[in-house]
Design a protein around this nucleic acid. Sequence first.
DNA 1: ACTCCCTTGCACAGAGGTGTGCAATCATTG
DNA 2: CAATGATTGCACACCTCTGTGCAAGGGAGT
Lengths: 200, 200
Amino acid sequence: MKPESARARAMEKTRNRILDVARDILGQNPDAGMGDIATAAGVVRRTVYGYFPARSDLVRTLAERAVEEITDVLKEIDADDAPVDAAWALFVARLWPLAHRYRVLLALRRGEQGDEIHALLGSVDRTLADLVQRGQDAGTFGRHLPAMVLGQIAYATVFTIADQHRAEGAPDVRAATITSLLVLGTSASRAHELADQEER
Amino acid sequence: MKPESARARAMEKTRNRILDVARDILGQNPDAGMGDIATAAGVVRRTVYGYFPARSDLVRTLAERAVEEITDVLKEIDADDAPVDAAWALFVARLWPLAHRYRVLLALRRGEQGDEIHALLGSVDRTLADLVQRGQDAGTFGRHLPAMVLGQIAYATVFTIADQHRAEGAPDVRAATITSLLVLGTSASRAHELADQEER
DNA sequence: ACTCCCTTGCACAGAGGTGTGCAATCATTG
DNA sequence: CAATGATTGCACACCTCTGTGCAAGGGAGT
């Protein structure tokens, strides 16, 4: 027997399904209503309110979840003591699948709760800036932008590419890795080397 | 006497003020209502409806205006027979002030009228893709992404940087030029050269 | 002065979304 | 079997925004 009752497990499953669906639905249309999300999750609107008293709670939970996953990736990168540009390549490789799922964040940063979400992403931003800073100090990354901004741009580039994904051409991890490395000021040859290396 | 009556001129002025204000307000919050826009423009909501029967009309006009301005820039670039990367640098330099104003477009491409706006931007996208394609054929730009997508990404980068502008660090035209050129696969040294040359 | 007509202020109907209350199911749990 | 509690279906009040109608102001044009 599991420590949790079957009842609790079912609820957990429902809750997660709501979150998963909300992530996708809101990714397509950030203004989608609770009704849309509920229907897509196979429950009634009222049920969603049972798990999330307000729409803002759902959105916050979604953002927290995303931040958590991204933070996990960042921790993994930090543990790695490879060169900074290789670390970035690894970061993009791990971030890529998340970038697809959490495309929402881009849209959510604007909108009602923009400030709240921005705050949640604060630690991610800082960690990222640190990484970029180290790269700049080592001469690996360019100085055409301050570390903080450069990190944001490179980061946003990955999401932008993920966004274009479903359109023609279908860029992939490799393209995202190369392009974001180029943004950071890595040479084209080195960028390709790292991207191909990552694919193994 | 001007061919237009003072009455007509005043109306034209009001109409433009509404559009200008709408551009700024919607840039800050794409979900702002007609009331917000009217108030900010110093008129009553009812008056705005006098010029634009529906919200969607206002938004479309705004998008058309932006496309027009960007198209003008593109024409100017096409007339210039400089190397492709220099042409891009010139493009960014001319686009930069517009990128600030029409930050809205990024948000507007999602949202209700996303498809409509996307269609309006179609010709811009194609012209841009052609430019990038020429660059790729000449070996000036990289091939890590198909021309169409690469153009979009480089273009989006400029807007993304303009977006970060009001935050700390305050990136400028130079940073935008360099970064977008890097995205396109131009070498760091050449990118700096072109950016500095543009500043004169 | 007299006439346009743009603007204003207010009222209204409607649509759409949010959040809550409550009784009725219905599967799990004891 | 009986109790528990998650889920449902429907009700409701509330809010915000949209778009329209209409009468009254007020400045430009004649």
